[in-house]
Design a protein around this nucleic acid. Sequence first.
DNA 1: ATTTCATTCAACCTTCAGGTTGAATATAAG
DNA 2: CTTATATTCAACCTGAAGGTTGAATGAAAT
Lengths: 108, 108
Amino acid sequence: MDSLSDVLDAISHPSRRAILDRLSRGPARVTQIAEPFDMSLNAVSKHLKVLEAAGLVRREVQGREHLIELRGEPLRLVSAWVQHYEQYWKQQLDRFEDHFKSKRKRKP
Amino acid sequence: MDSLSDVLDAISHPSRRAILDRLSRGPARVTQIAEPFDMSLNAVSKHLKVLEAAGLVRREVQGREHLIELRGEPLRLVSAWVQHYEQYWKQQLDRFEDHFKSKRKRKP
DNA sequence: ATTTCATTCAACCTTCAGGTTGAATATAAG
DNA sequence: CTTATATTCAACCTGAAGGTTGAATGAAAT
């Protein structure tokens, strides 16, 4: 549960990112979440299940209503994974800079 | 090209992450990349196309060989997206701490 | 000129994600 | 108790992702 693959799968879908975005402005019920979307309530319910399985969302059942709340914590996995590659794009920037530096040195 | 969706799609597949990992230890030809994998060369070739379309990989054709090189830069998009949610998991940590702090205050 | 090697293209198969609709469940309201 | 509301479950459809195999391309080696 909440393995990197699950989290990446979850956030790789635009609708699910949109849901997370919505939830970043506060918890909401399923129907409320679904409202702005051009898809059935059921589809949203499925997306929520995926997000929940990835740990990105927490569900508090209150009678017949389900209160859905954002849970950012699993994104740490993504953050850590990306961070491991940070050096590679920075390194590329360095090469870029070196390129100009050496140009300047040759033509001062 | 190199939109967030493309990049997330690209990295959401374990094999493609494994390929990126391999490339983080230096450029390689397609056959070399494919070698440790338990799948056909063609499958790897397809994965490389996905990575290339997302801008995560650069291809330098040298005669009949294709030299594949990691390009980390598009990951900045992911980094930025995740960073936007960082506050939410930190906020949750804060709530956690507050919980303990208030407990301590009530039972000093 | 042939053959071998590195890679892609094309066609195909299978699995599954994402969507639909309709019924089921469970709680709230009248 | 009946009806309306909120949500999920189940069955189904469709498109595409990820894999396969075999042929095509194009460069290198003999």
